[in-house]
Design a protein around this nucleic acid. Structure first.
Lengths: 333, 333
DNA sequence: CTGAAAGCGCTTACAG
DNA sequence: CTGAAAGCGCTTACAG
């Protein structure tokens, strides 16, 4: 069943069916209703390949999400979709692998779907650097800062990862901890991890510590990787009294590792997480964490892209503040 | 940049470029290499709208995943993709909302992408009942039993939810518990929840209990809904000694609720989960659970669909057994 | 092994 | 307000 069949059934031309389908203004409401009735009766769904192939400009905003099991992204993505819905634009959501090149994917989808804008939820600055150039529609990078990238159509919304890392370490020092361990992401490849680590260093320096002696273990952003990293870290440094993990998931793995080593959290070792996902509130103990303002990130991402699409607003780069969210995994020393 | 530009650059016709692109056999390897070189040099990516529109049959298997924050599905989906990769077919993954109609989505995608087969990860029998008829390629429903559905091209792989529910309750009775509470999914709308609950009833009957008095609270498959359900359940039945939650996520919410009410798990109340997701192993206490054989589900789903695609195998309906996975959230009374 | 031509199912000026 | 015709970027018989 194609638009042609519908046209025949309705006794009109395909052009008219197309008009009805796309809410074109100049069509008699009578005709329009009849066509819609026939479409409904036949459960007709237009072929989006043909539509996209021909259409010079679509009406939807692309949402590219990197990593489909990232709980922090799920929350933001949901919020972004709700907010876009309210603007009247359609949303087209695509999940990419953690390792995928989001810029290459964006170029392809851009040509195929002709979106009016793209929001990247998560993204690697290097990938964008390499391939973003071909994209001409307004875009927003959520969760990383694109200020240094030379693209006039790319805004960004992110937290200040340097300040956030510094805040985390400062907080643990303020609680009286001196022997602090860090479970970090891969500092070589992950931009936020790198910045947070730099912030941690800054805090250590200001507290009179030797930066080269920071107790630190690298981990991927998963439960079992963090579990192993924490185990190794504590085995080598049994006098540690606090650990900062760069995500709540890592913090959860860390707490389980500590528990398995006979250490009580927080009495023996305090644990501080990062992100502020819902899950951290259901752990035992509840995880104290540096919370990202996910609502604000979603809100601003949508606002920026709409401003660019509708009012030709210039690209801008917003950095948001994190906040400390208390929990049961931390105590004074 | 289109196939036409590539043709011009290579000094051949578009037909020849298309042949190179699709690994067609009758093309001089020299020509083929030249075309591929030019494609690579120009970062050319063919437009899949045009490809899908024209192509009479694609080469990929569609994987439709219902619910994008379902941790149990993530694991299976990953496995399915790996296994399909090995067969040489391509995979096209699509995430659907929990509330979306997967059958309608499948009909649309079927027409647009012309897949050789479809795997449904999660799905509602009613939706399939209503709209699956239009689909003609081999399909597998993973995670629910399609035996009663009248479709010759639809296989299914699922656990025996009735037996699983019975096993869960039996297990708690065997541990000496008499006052057992149930945190269930919505029995009206969720097929597995309904079957598991029927199994629980069977177990209660066999243990001489009055089935109408089963202590039972409905919940959605989320942390906070389970938290509330467990709180209500315990408030009304403070003498309860064990709770069976129909998912590990629900079990986690339940444990947190119990803890907040001053009950120790498992000393005061034992908690049994369901699914066997990785997360349950990182909770404190580790959650004892009825584990679904996710590897087997993935394995069989792919094997069944390949058999149907390549050897015209008839549809079959496999039911797998669950297994008990021990944890720290359960003890004898 | 290669090319010219038709056509997939839509949208979009253009004409009326 | 409506229709006829061109064309989006590919694939696929058909012919050579």
């Amino acid at each position: 069943m194609t638009i042609k069949d519908i046209a025949k059934l309705a006794g009109v031309s395909v052009s008219t069916v197309s008009r009805a389908l796309n809410g074109h203004p100049d069509i008699k409401s009578e005709t329009k209703e009849k066509i819609h009735r026939i479409i409904a009766e036949n459960n007709f769904i237009p072929n989006s390949n043909a539509k996209n192939l021909k259409q010079t400009a679509g009406k939807s905003i692309l949402l590219l999400i990197k990593g489909n099991s990232n709980m922090f992204f799920s929350v933001i993505s949901e919020q972004i979709q709700k907010r876009i819905d309210k603007t009247g634009f359609a949303v087209s959501v695509h999940y990419l692998d953690e390792q995928a090149d989001e810029a290459v994917a964006a170029v392809r989808l851009s040509r195929e779907q002709k979106p009016v804008g793209i929001i990247f939820l998560g993204g690697n600055l290097k990938n964008l650097q390499n391939s973003f150039g071909e994209i001409t529609v307004p875009c927003v990078l959520s969760t990383a800062n694109a200020k240094e990238l030379p693209f006039a159509n790319l805004s960004s919304v992110s937290i200040n990862d340097f300040e956030a890392g510094k805040k985390a370490a400062d907080f643990l020092f303020d609680m009286g901890h001196e022997k602090i361990g860090i479970i970090s992401g891969d500092i070589e490849t992950s931009n936020p991890s790198q910045l947070r680590y730099a912030g941690i260093k800054e805090s250590f320096m200001r507290h009179g510590k030797n930066v080269n002696e920071i107790i630190h273990e690298k981990s991927s952003y998963t439960l079992n990787s963090a579990y192993e990293a924490a185990t190794a870290l504590v085995q080598r440094n049994s006098d540690i009294t606090a650990i900062f993990a760069m995500s709540d998931i890592m913090a959860m793995g860390t707490i389980r590792a500590l528990t398995d080593m006979g250490k009580h959290v927080p009495e023996d070792v305090s644990v501080l997480g990062f992100d502020g996902i819902e899950l951290s509130d259901y752990c035992c103990p509840r995880i104290a964490t540096i919370a990202q303002p996910s609502q604000q990130i979603a809100d601003l991402s949508v606002r920026l892209i709409i401003d660019m699409i509708e009012h030709n607003a210039l690209a801008s780069h917003v950095q948001l503040k994190v906040s400390y969210k208390s929990g049961e995994s931390i105590c004074h020393i």
